[in-house]
Structure formats: structure tokens, C-alpha cells
Design a protein around this nucleic acid. Structure first.
Length: 281
DNA sequence: CTCCAGGTACTAA
DNA sequence: TTAGTACCTGGA
């Protein structure tokens, strides 16, 4: 495998936490499936071991995907403003933000509404398997994530068979809209407000999923997606008013964490999930 | 059996 | 604008 020297990397919580659903830990290696590739990673003693398939040695992808161009320690300094976030950073030190593919992130988080992580992961895997683009690595089978075209052409029964439930219809509608209107191109060139309104125009995508897509795939690392956990943190611990509107909370967080709210959000999210009892109300 | 899960659409006031 | 409710599905 290839190597990269890398400090400050909590590989487990980064890949298996709440921001990506496409990684599995198998025999001490992390395998992730994407639209056009499978990636194998391991992290040991400050060295990242990596390989990409079927196109080998795609170092640009690895660097881009893991945000290796950012100054990790400096960002932590900017967000470590109080005892709560400091606790979260200490507990999950090395947790990193991923820069994922737009379309895969879009569909994956479309599946997340009123769902749980285990179901989301299972649905995505069943869907990939039905789509049947198989790659064999280390004598294990992996299935690529479907493309926009794959979604447009696949029968909706694939989605129901994959236990997507009521979201099946949303996925069918959304992928058709993306396919017909060249949406990806429009989104990639739009500014923050336009991106947000385009994303929210899809049925099944509201404030929270919009933020997830923007943070995890479009590089808006000043934003914190406000899921139930983040909400509990900011109302319960940061004492924000319970009736603040979503946009106002987001703006408050953005400013408070010096425009690195996405990093703060990742720490606080994982921390809140791990220490639910602190947040009970 | 009921309740909940990284929410959102729909309806009524 | 705001509050209330239903929603596929699997697991506790």
C-alpha cells in the first residue's frame, strides 16, 4: 500500500461517525465504496496506508477527500472557545471533516430523514448491490455507488427492496430532476444562499439535510448542520433560546466558532451522541 | 405493544 | 408564520 505521513487523525470516528455511510472496518482495514472507486485505508503510528481501486495510486483523491491541505491544529485553536467544545476535542481528537462527492452525499443524506444510521448504511449497501457494479479486492466483493443515470434508469422497486421506505419516491424524483436539469453544474457554481435554496427545492430535503450536503460535500466548513444532537447541545449547554429559528442558530454558531462551525459541529455531534446522559432533558 | 431514529411535507389555524 | 401530525422500517 502507499503511505502518507499524517498527524492528528482519528480514522475510526472520522470514517464511521455520522458524516459518511460508505465505510466498513474489515480485518483492520477501512474499505469505502464510491461512485467510481473503492478505497482501502489503514492508520498506524502516524502513517496513513492507502490504496485506490480500480485506478491505483490516486493520491489526489486521498488528499482532497481527507482535507489534507487544511491546518488542523490551527482550526482547533479557532474553535476551542469553551469547556464543552474543549471536552469534545479532547475526547475525539483527530476527528476530521471529509470532502465527499456531491451526488453520493446528496442521496445518502436524502435517506437520513427520520431514519437511523444503521438503517441508512444498510439501505445504501442493498441499493449498491442491486445496482451490481462489483469490484473484488482482497477476495472481498464491493459494490460501487450508483450514478445519476443508474438512479434514473433503475426501477423504483430497487429502492423499496433496499428499505428506503417513503424516501424511495423522493430519491426517484430528485435524481430525475438532477439528471434532466444539469443541477449539479448549477449547484457547484452557485453561492451559499443560492445553493441552499436549490437544495431545499428538492422534495425530502429541508434545512438540516441541506446543511449536511453543503458541509460534507461542498466545502462549507463554516456551517454546522443542526440535527437533534447539535440542537440539544446548543440549547442545553450553550443556552440558546429554545425558540430561535434554524437560520438564526446557524448564524450564531458560524460566528461563534470563527467560521469553522463544521469542525466544531463534528466534535460536538460525536461527543453528544457518546454522552447522551449529559444532555437529557 | 409502543417508541424512536442525524427530518420533512402537509394541513389547519 | 406556527403548531400538529403522518411517514417506511428495524430494533429496543
Amino acid at each position: 500500500m502507499n503511505t502518507l505521513k499524517l498527524d492528528d487523525f482519528n480514522i475510526h470516528d472520522t470514517l464511521l461517525g455520522g458524516q459518511a455511510f460508505n465505510w466498513d472496518l474489515i480485518d483492520d482495514f477501512y474499505y469505502g465504496f464510491f461512485i467510481d472507486k473503492v478505497v482501502k485505508l489503514q492508520y498506524k503510528d502516524g502513517i496513513l496506508y492507502w490504496q485506490t481501486y480500480p485506478k491505483k495510486n490516486n493520491v489526489n483523491f486521498i488528499k482532497h477527500y481527507l482535507y489534507l491541505d487544511i491546518d488542523y491544529k490551527n482550526i482547533l485553536k479557532k474553535i476551542a472557545k469553551d469547556k464543552w467544545i474543549k471536552q469534545a476535542i479532547k475526547q475525539f481528537y483527530g476527528l476530521r471533516l471529509l470532502r465527499q462527492d456531491f451526488f453520493q452525499t446528496f442521496v445518502s443524506f436524502l435517506l437520513s430523514s427520520n431514519n437511523n444510521i444503521s438503517n441508512i448504511r444498510n439501505s445504501i449497501r442493498m441499493l449498491c448491490k442491486l445496482n451490481n457494479k462489483k469490484i473484488q479486492i482482497d477476495k472481498k466483493n464491493f459494490y460501487l455507488f450508483p450514478t445519476v443515470e443508474d438512479f434514473v434508469h433503475m426501477p423504483i422497486s430497487f429502492l423499496y427492496k433496499s428499505k428506503c421506505g417513503f424516501r424511495s419516491h423522493y430519491i426517484k424524483l430528485a435524481t430525475k430532476k438532477i439528471y434532466n436539469n444539469d443541477m449539479i453544474h448549477n449547484i457547484l457554481k452557485a453561492d451559499e444562499n443560492n445553493t441552499r435554496s436549490i437544495l431545499k427545492s428538492f422534495k425530502g430535503i429541508g434545512d438540516k439535510i441541506t446543511d449536511c450536503i453543503m458541509v460534507f460535500s461542498l466545502g462549507y466548513y463554516d456551517i454546522t448542520p443542526l440535527d437533534v444532537w447539535a440542537k440539544k447541545v446548543f440549547i442545553n449547554l450553550y443556552k440558546l433560546n429554545n425558540n430561535m429559528k434554524y437560520d438564526d442558530i446557524r448564524n450564531w454558531i458560524k460566528k461563534y466558532f470563527n467560521n469553522y462551525g463544521a469542525f466544531a459541529g463534528q466534535f460536538l455531534y460525536e461527543w453528544a451522541r457518546a454522552y447522551k446522559n449529559i444532555l437529557k432533558q
